[in-house]
Design a protein around this nucleic acid. Structure first.
Lengths: 109, 109
DNA sequence: TATTTATTTCTATGATAATGGAAACATGGA
DNA sequence: TCCATGTTTCCATTATCATAGAAATAAATA
């Protein structure tokens, strides 16, 4: 992962509305959630939601999929994992240290 | 982890200089690196570095430790792991999915 | 105490992001 | 084609962040 991509992803997540959206989508899994459902759940105007979804999409953290009139948004697990790998890269200069397991290998996304 | 803490951490990392600093400290491990060494390595004025280190410290992503005239900064692995756990929490609604291992359990920090 | 070295705070300037109403744009059904 | 529904773009206002020179602080040594 390149630093500018990581920064874009981190900046996209560093916002209450967007972080909440992302976590909802992570929990929703592959199938995703339509935009309108997110707006209702979050209680924000469509214009505001659309702005934030665009930010997340641009950062490749979410994927949009049109299905009839609805647009389903889902988490991009590949980007999420690449980001976490980037943050922990070469941790402790190779010293053996404890490991934590996190979810969703890119094989599943 | 609370959302506001996660946002503060993500915002702190969403900046080229700060992300670079953080990754240097992750790789340096427990012992850390003195501020002046970071400024030289990054080629930025002390004032600018200090501003960014303050942001990282405030977000509890780094820990400062005074040792004679030097201030050693090191990564806060506990916060890093809490953040990653927060992002992946209840991923895929409990559906079994691949796992990736990332570094540095809080037991070691 | 005076000096050198390491680091931080102060400050002003310039740059970037967030919000939501209104209008526009698609899509599917009558 | 006309209407209802779902979603996005436009825009202006407001708020927040980044930068780095200069001055201040703090610790070690002469």
């Amino acid at each position: 992962m390149e630093i500018n991509i990581a920064i874009k992803a981190l900046a996209a997540l560093a916002h209450e509305t967007r972080l909440t959206i992302f976590r909802m989508l992570v929990q929703a899994g592959e199938s995703g959630v339509p935009a309108g459902h997110l707006a209702k759940e979050l209680g924000i105007p469509n214009a505001t939601l659309s702005f934030h979804l665009k930010e997340l999409t641009h950062a490749e953290l979410v994927i949009a999929r049109q299905e009839s009139r609805f647009i389903y948004y889902s988490a991009n697990f590949a980007t999420m994992n690449a980001l976490m790998g980037y943050l922990t890269e070469n941790c402790c200069a190779g010293t053996p240290c404890g490991m934590v397991e996190v979810c969703c290998d890119e094989k599943n996304s």
